[in-house]
Simulated assay, not measured.
Amino acid sequence: MRSSMNWDTLWPLMLNATLETLYMVVLATLFTVIIGLPLGTLLFISRRDGILPLPRLHALLATLVNIGRSLPFVVLLVALIPFTRLIIGTTLGSTAAIVPITIGAFPFFARVVEAALDEVDTGRIEAIVSMGGSVRHVIGKVLLPEALPAILAGITLTMVMLIGFSSMAGVIGGGGLGDLAIRYGYQRFNNQVMVATVVVLIVMVQGVQSTGNALVRALAHRR
């Protein structure tokens, strides 16, 4: 049986769900960058031909990252329920959803960072090394500054992915627009709620992508 919902009732629900989604995406992006940026950098420098060759460590990290990227996010959501409960104390709500969202995203972002660093001119790296520069100097003076536009583009791409992840977190009661669409739209056969959540998600993705692209262009022109 289909049900309808007037705007006065739908508006507060949509606003709260949108704020919860933004909360999850912003914090998950922060944690993803905090974990993924050093991990991607370590993957790059620890290659056999890297500035700090550690083949065994590289192989281990690469394997773990590949495993993390290969798991479907819905499966990861369910598999991480005990870990989320251990960390947060509950598996329900937007705060709890940040745990699996971050774990699902940082392997992807680590590979994005590694690919961005791979585009840096090797001549710049060799110049710093030949002048006696340490690994820390190479990373801080060449790798990260030179790869910053590509990394920023990767953060934008990751945020778009995290919006989708936050929506899927509604399957396990993670809150946000996904939870609203499932509880008030799908389960109650309310097309109005379904369409409204889809529109908000599209606007959110477009906003993130446009803002990210503008920042990348501005940074590239400044360089």
Rank of each mutant, 00 (worst) to 15 (best):
L117S: 08
V74Y: 09
E20F: 05
A97W: 00
I128S: 09
S46F: 15
A17H: 04
L71S: 13
I35Y: 02
I45D: 04
V75G: 01
L60T: 14
Y23R: 13
A96V: 00
A17E: 02
R85S: 13
L86G: 03
S46R: 15
V113K: 09
L60H: 02
I87G: 10
V78Q: 12
L71M: 15
T41L: 10
P38L: 14
A17G: 05
T29Y: 09
F73L: 07
S46E: 06
F83T: 07
V99H: 11
A115G: 09
F108V: 06
V25N: 04
G50L: 04
T29A: 14
A79C: 10
G93L: 00
P72T: 10
G40E: 04
F44Y: 15
V75Y: 11
L77E: 02
R48H: 13
R124A: 12
V75Q: 01
L77Y: 08
L54D: 05
L76Q: 09
L54K: 14
A28K: 09
N16P: 00
G89H: 01
M24H: 11
I45L: 10
A116I: 06
L86K: 01
A62M: 10
I67P: 11
I45V: 14
N16V: 10
P100G: 13
V113C: 08
H58D: 04
R47E: 06
F73R: 05
S70H: 12
A96Y: 00
L86E: 15
L15Q: 12
G123P: 15
V75H: 08
N66M: 00
D49S: 06
F44D: 11
G104E: 00
P55I: 01
P38N: 15
G50D: 04
T102R: 03
A127I: 07
V113L: 03
A115D: 09
T90E: 04
T29V: 00
L15I: 07
D118S: 14
T84V: 00
E126Q: 14
T63V: 13
S94L: 03
V33E: 08
I88W: 03
G123Q: 09
G68Y: 03
P82Y: 12
L43W: 11
R111W: 01
D121C: 08
F73H: 12
V26C: 10
L30D: 02
G104L: 12
F108Q: 08
V129W: 15
V74N: 02
F109C: 06
E114K: 11
V65I: 04
L27V: 01
R69E: 01
A115R: 15
V65Q: 04
P107D: 06
A62K: 10
F44L: 11
P100S: 14
L64D: 07
A105T: 04
V25R: 15
R56V: 10
I103N: 08
R111I: 01
V113D: 11
